[in-house]
Amino acid sequence: MTARTPTLRFVASRLLYTAVVLLGVLVVVFALIHLVPGDPVRIALGTRYSPETYQALRHASGLDRPIAAQFLSYLGGAVTGDLGVSFRNGQPVTLILLDRLPATLSLAGVGVVIALVIALPLGTLAALREGRAVDGAIRVVSQFGVSVPDFWIGMLLITLFSAVLGLLPSSGYVPIVEDPVQWLRRVTLPALTIGLVAGSIMTRYVRAAVIDVASSGYVRTAESKGLGRAVVVGRHIGRNALVPVLTITGIQLATMLGGVIVVEVVFAWPGLGRLMYDSVASRDYPVIQGAVLMIAALFLAINLIVDILYSVIDPRIRLS
């Protein structure tokens, strides 16, 4: 057996697990429209209802066919990227989701970078100074960040940087490919909002992970050999604390990709979270279905990447 075989087997098992979970999510998403009380098409049309429009929308959505045929059609469509059409504007759901995805990816990407910049140094410092004043101060600040609602932080940032200082716009979105400078100016406040909250959560996990590793026997052995503190922290503590830190980072990134709805509403950010909010308000069930499915797929993709990184950081995970 080659050294590569356990890695390939580990990745294959995670891919199979991801596919099974995604199939289960697809079944639940399909059932969503049939579990809604009343006729979803009639509810979605509201005051726009007419018999002709009603029948046309039911036919376009495939809701006039038997349940089994609808599921097989939805399954086949999901595999090929066809998630139906919106009740609200008749556009393909896939195109609507892809149009919103870049905004979500950019916000989540910048947000998780800010969270890591906050959490890694502060969590490590608090762990290395456990029980001292700096540890207590960092724990108090992180607890404050966890407890305060993200929309309140967002409103404070808007008041300070937009209303008082006039440095940054309070809302709106510009794609990075169109104008990188304007994109950066507009993504800063919402990303800082979610980054501060996620960073506060992650700081506590980093602190706990570093404390746990620092008390290990091999760390004490390294210190007894006369290795410098920087070498011990960087080579022995840092790498071995990465697995739990990677776990919470993946969870926070997946949460951001799922759409921080309140933050997106506050900053008028056109991401998947804002799309879900608008779709629920307008009873646009095909878009809700598609958004839930895409968010689940993103969440599973992040988990898969994290699992693979586990095996890279600690080979014992894939061998087990």
Rank of each mutant, 00 (worst) to 15 (best):
A297K: 08
W183H: 12
G234H: 10
V29K: 02
S50D: 14
A126M: 11
G238A: 06
R204Q: 15
V263W: 09
Y74S: 12
T193H: 09
G145Q: 06
W269V: 00
R129K: 15
V27N: 00
Q91Y: 09
T5L: 13
S215M: 15
Y277Q: 10
Y310T: 03
I295Q: 09
F151P: 01
N240D: 11
D150H: 11
R204M: 14
G77Y: 03
L75V: 12
G154A: 05
Y54L: 08
Y17C: 00
V36N: 01
I248W: 09
S73Q: 10
T18K: 00
V232T: 13
G145K: 04
S73E: 12
V219C: 02
M1D: 03
R132A: 07
V85Q: 01
A163W: 07
A12T: 14
V79R: 10
Y310N: 12
V232W: 07
S171D: 06
T80Q: 02
T104L: 04
R4E: 05
L300Q: 05
L83H: 06
G123Q: 08
T94F: 13
G145Y: 08
S216Y: 11
G84W: 05
A78C: 09
Y54K: 08
L101K: 03
D212A: 14
G76I: 09
V245Y: 10
A133M: 11
L157S: 06
I153E: 06
A126D: 03
L298E: 08
V25F: 08
G131N: 07
I295G: 00
L22A: 13
S215F: 07
T249Q: 07
G273L: 12
D284H: 15
R318N: 08
L22Y: 09
V20F: 14
L63K: 02
V292D: 06
S224F: 07
T249N: 01
V243Q: 05
V36I: 15
R186Y: 05
S147I: 13
V85N: 13
R283F: 14
M294H: 04
Y205A: 02
D64A: 12
T221C: 04
V187L: 11
D64G: 12
A60Q: 15
G123H: 14
W269R: 12
I118T: 07
D307G: 13
M256P: 03
I211H: 03
P169W: 11
L246C: 04
R129V: 11
G109N: 05
V263E: 10
L189W: 01
I317R: 02
A133W: 14
L227C: 02
F30D: 02
I211D: 01
A127P: 11
L157R: 03
Y310S: 08
L304N: 02
